Amino acid sequence: MVKLGGSVLSSPEDFMRAAEVTKRDFEAGNEILLVVSAMKGQTDQLIDMARKVGASGELLDAIAGLGEVLSARLMASALNSIGVPSVAIDPCSPIWPIYTDGSFGDADPDIPTTCGAAISNIEHMLGKCVPVVCGYVGKTREGKLTTLGRGGSDTTAVILARCLRADEVVLVKDSGGIMSADPKIAGNAHKLSNLSAEEALTLSMGGAKVLHHKAVRYLSPTVRMRVLSIDGGSFVRGGTIISGHIPELKVEVHEKPVSMVTLIVDGDLNGLDLRPLSESKLDKAVILYLDEPPEEVVKKVHPLVERGVVKAISVKKDLAMIKVWGGAIEDVPGVINKISDPLASMGINIHGLQTVHNKIAVFVDWKNREVAASELEEALG
């Protein structure tokens, strides 16, 4: 499963170059399905024009996806011209596989319907030809045209890889993989060889533009993701490998009691020999959550009091850390209230609550951990 981004499809020469790489890998015995984005800048132009003439809803989505239709037909033509049998598949095709809900502009995939269509319509083609599927676009079961939102072509490729039980989904970008930082900002940024799905989701939700968080969310645990550049001359090696799986929504209780250590800080905490499970800072207060014995923590920190870095220390023992996380958190409106309100209604005090993108950690008394976790599972569905 290979997705070609718009940044690598900007000219006829780009299409022919991608076709030549596809041909080498296909003739080496690899089953390949291509998912293509619109050419660079084309979707923005289409949306801008559509809005200026008053298009909205389904009509706006139908216009926004025309760039992918063009790319699919150009890519299939390029492949056929060099002897690789290929067929373009767009929402008008009788074998179209991508089905969604009716949320125009940012639709979510209908996984069961999509998998059924992909297996029935496309699976038998693999290895015999190279299907080229429009990324980003979809349609409802009623036939209304939709789009999957920004980065939607990545999502298309990941979903098809999941449905067709691919070994790997390859996202071809203009970078050689996922970098340690934005190379435009950090001159010594380097390519990462591998990431877990959880790490990749955290980076993408934090603003890393090379990867869309919705694509990571739908990654199957049996499918590797590879992010690479076409410059390597192959889609089956190099780049950054992402492996693992993101649950839709999960409630987990940390296996050991946790201590909340509060520091009133007057200086720099560098060199502190602690590995907190979580931490937060506001003004002069630093709060560390650790599963080390609190007495040991105080012994490690108190020398900073003597040096004038920390003014005072307090410890609250025997807390439980309950982590709520998963790809579906962004789909839960008022998720913080859905965590705090049920616990409050049961008289369970929340000693701390922290959020990092798709993860929320809530701290309650250790004795209440089981009933609190059960209540959260029920409240969050």
Rank of each mutant, 00 (worst) to 15 (best):
A118Y: 01
P112D: 09
R150T: 03
A107I: 04
G102Q: 14
L160K: 05
K144I: 11
P109M: 06
Y136E: 07
E168H: 00
A117N: 14
T113W: 03
A118S: 08
E123M: 11
Y136T: 06
L160V: 05
R165H: 07
S120L: 14
L160H: 03
D110T: 09
V172Q: 06
H124A: 15
T155Y: 01
G151P: 03
K139M: 13
T155P: 02
T114N: 01
G135L: 08
L126D: 03
D167Q: 01
G116N: 10
N121Y: 14
D167T: 04
E142N: 11
P109R: 03
S180I: 14
C115H: 05
D106Y: 05
G127D: 10
K173N: 14
S175F: 07
D174E: 15
C134F: 13
I159G: 02
D110Y: 04
E123C: 04
D106E: 09
M125T: 09
I178M: 12
G143Q: 10
K173G: 12
D101Y: 02
E168R: 01
T100G: 08
G102I: 11
C134Q: 13
T140G: 13
E142Q: 14
K173P: 06
C134I: 05
G177D: 08
G177P: 10
K144S: 12
G149R: 03
P109G: 09
T146F: 13
T114I: 03
V169S: 00
L126S: 06
C134G: 13
T114M: 03
L164E: 02
C134T: 12
G116H: 10
D174P: 09
I119S: 08
V158N: 05
T114G: 00
S180R: 09
S175D: 11
K144F: 13
D154N: 07
G102M: 09
C129A: 13
S120V: 08
M125R: 13
R141E: 15
L164Y: 04
L126W: 05
N121V: 10
T146W: 07
A117M: 10
S175E: 14
C129E: 15
L145T: 07
K144T: 13
T155G: 04
S153P: 01
G149W: 00
D108P: 01
I159H: 02
D101H: 04
G127N: 05
G177S: 14
P109V: 08
T146A: 12
N121R: 10
A107H: 02
R150W: 03
V169E: 00
T156P: 03
P131H: 07
M179K: 12
N121H: 15
G135T: 14
C163L: 06
K128T: 12
K128Y: 07
I119T: 13
D174V: 05
A107Y: 03
G177E: 08
K144V: 13
R150F: 02
G176M: 15
T155A: 01
G116F: 07
A157Q: 08
L164H: 08
